[in-house]
Design a protein around this nucleic acid. Structure first.
Length: 580
RNA sequence: GCGCCCUUAGCUCAGCCGGAUAGAGCAUCGGACUUCUAAUCCGACGGUCGCAGGUUCGAAUCCUGCAGGGCGCGCCA
């Protein structure tokens, strides 16, 4: 165990047992980072009442017990301060020893979840039958990061891309495909003109009654799985998926075709899902529609709020699909945890779906279903991210612009064309992705190229720059980072700060996975990069006047920093250039 | 009417498993390149944490109420 917080928790708990009896050994010692020492333990204050003793007295008893236990291998000092805080300073030798251990650890201090869970992450889910907009970018990126984090923690991950690939609009989309010709339609969809395509079909649907009628008939033949209609549907979907895949590939998202589990997949389960709910009396017919009324959900006038699972025309909506999906995921895929990485505006829907699934017994207490709410992406004016015409910005255009801007920023660096393009791509994508990840996922988020591409502050490029500088040291010194093994000697405060900071990686990743919050990883990495740059400015590594043992120690610190940053950025899905 | 999210420095955001003097970045002002990438670093300035109660030794953090903003709420998904 190298994580200081965990080690301190264990040691202080032992001391609590010694000082006050075994019933106190399980109390949370409330170890927190401190501005007055390396860490502080706040447990004396919280236990004072229960023990009926003065807080400082309690703190003294804990300190004495720590002394008696002979913990001088870890602690430099334990001081009582203020109303009863225990200020804990770690020994330099202990920190450097842990840092050396972490340097040898291929997992860089990140533990494995025991027992591992089967976690299903439902994310990205672009809708082929609607305008695709930049909002999908965020669910994709946050979801992919959560997958990477949870997988790295040793869990079994099931990625599911719940594509919007079924339903009423597909009648009109298929008819439009016939109108403009198969080849033409495919070419345009693959080129990412899905939004325009949808708009054209929509306009015809609204203005041309004959087209409207054809579209309606087409929906019916699609539902009936008529072979020719299914063929056309496949043509449409394959072309659309091909475009999605281009975006995924550009972004470096880990989703593949194998992860597609779209709405169409559940089509054949819908009737049975409804029948089950109706038979068990959970669903009832109201105003012609089959509904579930989960308790506790009311609309205006305290009227129960319905979850409509079969429309009055006999068709099914997304509530039915989501119920069928949750049943399938729990019963057949045997998941322990499901994360729905979906827009925050769907909060009420998911609450009701989860409630209905619990009523049906499909969702049990052993399974955690969580809606990871994704806040809306806003333009720089603080309003919905739209172009003037109201049409959503094309994703590829948005990404291209980020790359162009990154390219412009490195224009004077003297790289050849190919290298420059490669760096620009890495920096551009890193900037966009990091910006999506660095703020809490449920808050609204203002998309701003200048801010995300800035080379200072909590941005992708700043993180990337830190790794590039470290690599540059190794390149210049003609040393392989894996050959830098120390020993680590902590002299300067900047060296000590860095080493201590690096030991906290594991618990941050663990916490981020448990709470589904990648931004915690970002915050930690930013602190780490920032601590490193301070070290970088103050402590020369390759300079002639640096003694060999100091140089070896600093190289080891650089290597460990690189490991942490590189591993952390991988967990975020943010790529790193070797130079920039 | 109900539900979710939000309100912290001029701006963009952290912190919210209660703990000491509320943190970053940007902006503003002032410093640091014969030195491993100055795309950087150091410093200064800047906040009655929306308001009012409550719980507590202690509240930005927990509870209640109120105000303001965003989003959603019966047959689109």
């Amino acid at each position: 165990m190298t994580d200081p917080q965990l080690v301190l928790t264990e040691r202080v708990q032992q001391a609590l047992g010694t000082a006050f009896g075994p019933e106190y050994a399980g109390a949370d010692p409330l170890i927190r980072p401190s501005q007055f020492a390396d860490f502080q333990a706040n447990v004396a204050l919280s236990l004072a009442k229960r023990l009926r003793r003065a807080p400082r007295e309690v703190a003294q008893a804990i300190a004495d017990a720590l002394d008696a236990a002979g913990t001088t291998d870890v602690f430099e000092s334990v001081e009582i301060s203020g109303p009863g805080f225990l200020n804990i300073t770690l020994k330099d030798e202990w920190i450097s020893a842990q840092a050396e251990r972490t340097l040898e650890d291929p997992r860089v201090g990140v533990g494995l979840t025991t027992p591992p869970q089967t976690v299903l992450v439902d994310y990205s889910a672009p809708n082929a039958a609607k305008e695709m907009h930049v909002g999908h970018l965020r669910t994709t990126i946050v979801g992919d990061s959560l997958v990477r984090i949870l997988e790295h923690l040793g869990n079994r991950l099931i990625r599911q891309n719940h594509l919007g690939d079924w339903g009423t609009p597909f009648g009109m989309l298929i008819e439009h495909l016939l109108d403009i010709g198969e080849g033409n339609a495919i070419a345009r969809l693959e080129a990412g003109e899905g939004s325009e395509y949808y708009q054209e079909a929509r306009v015809k649907f609204d203005s041309d009654n004959a087209f409207k009628e054809r579209s309606r008939r087409r929906v019916a033949t699609l539902q009936a799985e008529d072979p020719e209609t299914i063929r056309l549907w496949h043509l449409f979907m394959n072309a659309t998926i091909s475009y999605f895949n281009k975006i995924y590939s550009t972004l470096g998202v880990t989703l593949t075709d194998d992860d597609i589990a779209g709405e169409s997949m559940y089509n054949r389960m819908l009737a049975e899902t409804c029948a089950d709910l109706e038979a068990s009396g959970i669903a009832t017919v109201s105003e012609g529609a089959l509904c579930v009324f989960p308790p506790g959900f009311t609309g205006s006038d305290d009227k129960p709020l319905p979850l409509i699972i079969r429309k009055s025309d006999g068709g099914y909506g997304y509530a039915t699909t989501d119920l069928a999906a949750i049943r399938y995921r729990v019963r057949d895929l045997k998941v322990d945890r499901i994360l729905y990485v979906v827009g925050a505006e769907q909060a009420l829907h998911f609450q009701m779906v989860f409630a209905a699934a619990r009523m049906a017994g499909w969702l049990t207490d052993e399974v955690s279903a969580e809606h990871t709410q994704i806040g809306m992406m806003l333009g720089s004016d603080g309003r919905r991210f739209r172009t003037r015409s109201g049409v959503a910005t094309k994703l590829s255009d948005l990404l291209d612009e980020a790359v162009e801007r990154a390219s412009a920023a490195i224009a004077e660096r003297g790289y050849d064309e190919a290298t420059r393009a490669e760096i620009a791509h890495t920096v551009g994508m890193g900037a966009v992705k990091y910006a999506d990840l660095s703020v809490s996922h449920d808050s609204e988020y203002i998309f701003d190229y200048d801010r995300m591409l800035a080379f200072s502050g909590n941005t992708g490029p700043y993180m990337q720059y830190a790794t590039a500088r470290i690599r540059s040291i190794f390149r210049k010194g003609e040393i392989d980072p894996s050959a830098a093994t120390g020993p680590i000697i902590l002299g300067e405060p900047a060296e000590r700060d860095l080493a201590l900071q690096l030991l906290g990686f594991g618990s941050v990743v663990e916490h981020a996975g448990a709470s589904s919050e990648p931004h915690r990883v970002c915050a930690y990495l930013y602190e780490t990069a920032s601590t490193f740059t301070t070290f970088y400015e103050k402590c020369h590594v390759l300079h002639d006047d640096v003694p060999p043992e100091t140089r070896a120690s600093r190289l080891a610190l650089c290597a460990l920093t690189l490991n942490v940053l590189q591993t952390g950025l991988n967990l975020l899905g943010v790529p790193t250039p070797t130079r920039m």
